[in-house]
Lab assay of single mutants.
Amino acid sequence: SAEDNLGPLPENWEMAYTENGEVYFIDHNTKTTSWLDPRCLNKQQK
Rank of each mutant, 00 (worst) to 15 (best):
M15D: 04
K46F: 09
F25N: 00
P8I: 07
K31E: 07
W35F: 14
N12R: 10
K46H: 15
E14T: 08
T33K: 07
C40V: 15
P38A: 01
Q44H: 07
G21W: 05
N12P: 07
K46V: 15
Y17G: 06
R39C: 02
Q44S: 13
N42I: 14
I26D: 01
P38C: 00
G7N: 11
F25E: 02
V23T: 12
V23K: 15
T33N: 04
N20C: 11
F25M: 01
P8K: 11
E14W: 02
E3P: 07
S34K: 02
C40S: 15
W35M: 05
E22K: 08
Q44T: 15
L36N: 07
E14Q: 08
P8R: 09
L6K: 14
L6C: 05
T32N: 05
T32L: 10
V23G: 09
G7P: 10
N5L: 09
Q45G: 10
W13L: 05
D27A: 01
P38I: 01
A16E: 07
L9W: 05
D37Y: 02
I26L: 13
Q44E: 15
L6V: 09
P8T: 11
E14N: 07
P38M: 01
P8M: 08
N20Q: 12
G21T: 04
H28S: 06
E11M: 10
K43I: 14
T30Q: 08
D37P: 04
A16Y: 02
N29K: 13
T30N: 07
L36I: 10
D27S: 03
D4A: 10
Q45F: 07
R39V: 02
L6D: 12
K46A: 07
F25D: 00
G21I: 01
W35N: 03
G21C: 06
D37A: 03
V23R: 15
N42C: 13
A2G: 11
L6F: 06
D4P: 08
D37C: 01
N12K: 10
T32P: 00
E14G: 06
T32F: 05
K46W: 04
I26M: 12
E19Y: 06
T18C: 09
D4M: 12
W13Y: 07
Q45N: 15
T18Q: 06
L36M: 11
A2Y: 10
P8V: 10
T33E: 03
A2W: 09
N20Y: 08
L6Y: 13
A2Q: 14
R39N: 02
F25V: 00
Y24I: 03
G7C: 06
I26Y: 02
L9D: 02
N12I: 00
D37V: 02
H28M: 05
S34W: 00
N20K: 15
Q45H: 12
N42V: 12
S1R: 08
N20M: 14
Y24P: 01
